[in-house]
Design a protein around this nucleic acid. Structure first.
Lengths: 216, 216
DNA sequence: CGAAGTCTGTGAAAAATATCACAAAGTATC
DNA sequence: GATACTTTGTGATATTTTTCACAGACTTCG
């Protein structure tokens, strides 16, 4: 196991590998080679081995990786052996879609509280979650041991909400608002920005056939 | 203007710059320096200048960039002076949230048709869009001049849907399903994967304070 | 108009990331 | 158990991307 800094892109790919072998485990496949896994994720064999190499030696020379073992190791590395409680701020169209999104449940990531600034939305129920005023965020964070947060509010409010989140003691933010958040050192933000992604695609559409389509 | 290949990350950041100066234009600010713009986007002045440098010279030495001019130039470069028609496939929670999402309209990106495999959803109306069976995708693509597509279907169906999209002649896909799509050369896919983003955050939460938090 | 200050554009350097390529270590087969 | 394959783990290399740093160009102000 190397001591070098692990690129964030490696972490991101590890989740991809884990996702893939979880599917394979379901259909009872026992082993996989780096080249097979590289093909399935469109990433190549060397990338797979390099990424895993940051965390140890998981394979058997000549035979590949045991799916059961690799799955267990990746889950440990990626923190999937623990449960993570998530606060959702903003219960508009997107927020409620996220509440309904089954994908999170499967992954030991659990939205345990929802907040909104709009008085009309307070008290609304989504499954077993009741929408609360943002003023209660700090209290709930302590009570429910919340470590992750999702910002799904309009752009204009996102920075303020981020500050409230940080004051409440949460240090990880998934931001859906299309703004660049300013946060202190130590706070980790990841942005999900649909319209920008779609815009980037439109850039490629605009530049098809003028020599830029090979852009990578 | 350099002839070198433009990194995709540059394109992505150009949209960020454009977003920022569009806000500034609204409040009647006339010029901005690379360092100011770099601060506002948390990207640094050199990055701003380098990114713009791929496409030409837009600034005035000693004075910075004219916001009106830069805005116009970026819009041209990024294809925002044209209109792009988008097909949405999948009208579950996420799909309907996307239909309702006002962000797209503002950006010359327009969802003009929605499709679903579920017979029960066919005919449903969202605003002025009626949900259609996927079998009509190809026809509608021609009729409405659709160039971009959004996949918002369950993971298991995403690959099949992608193939239908490509057969219909659409070459740009924004994929919300948590799978690695396999597409032929020339087709551009971008993935938006909430649960992975949230999982990556949980990795950081899991590794706070053990020397990995400086990971970048 | 000249001096002091500001800010761009861009090569060069550094850092980060991905790919190659191969020795070493295993497996499979006969 | 020897031979032919297969596949890992990892230095070395290549590529990509970011950051630095400064000459040259323009502005501002007295």
């Amino acid at each position: 196991m190397s001591n070098k800094k692990v690129p964030e892109s490696t972490i991101s790919r590890l989740f991809l590998y884990l996702r893939e072998i979880t599917e394979l485990a379901k259909i009872n496949i026992k082993t996989i080679s780096s080249s097979e896994l590289g093909d399935r994720t469109n990433l190549g064999d060397a990338q797979v081995r390099k990424d895993l190499g940051y965390f140890g030696q998981f394979g058997v020379t000549g035979a590949g990786y045991s799916i059961a073992d690799l799955k267990k190791s990746l889950e440990k590395i990626l923190g999937k052996d623990k449960k993570w409680n998530v606060a959702l701020i903003g219960t508009g169209h997107l927020g409620t879609a996220l509440l309904a999104y089954s994908g999170f449940g499967r992954h030991e990531l659990d939205i345990v509280a929802a907040f909104d600034a709009d008085a009309k939305k307070i008290g609304k129920k989504f499954g077993d979650i009741t929408v609360r005023p943002i003023s209660e965020l700090e209290k709930l964070t302590k009570e429910k041991n919340i470590t992750l947060s999702i910002i799904a509010v309009p752009a204009a409010e996102a920075q303020g909400v981020a500050e409230t989140i940080i004051k409440a003691g949460i240090e990880c933010i998934l931001n859906f608002a299309p703004v660049s958040l300013n946060v202190p050192e130590g706070v980790k933000v990841r942005n999900v920005d649909f319209s920008r992604e779609l815009e980037i695609l439109s850039y490629f559409a605009a530049n098809k056939g003028n020599g830029r389509e090979t852009l990578k």
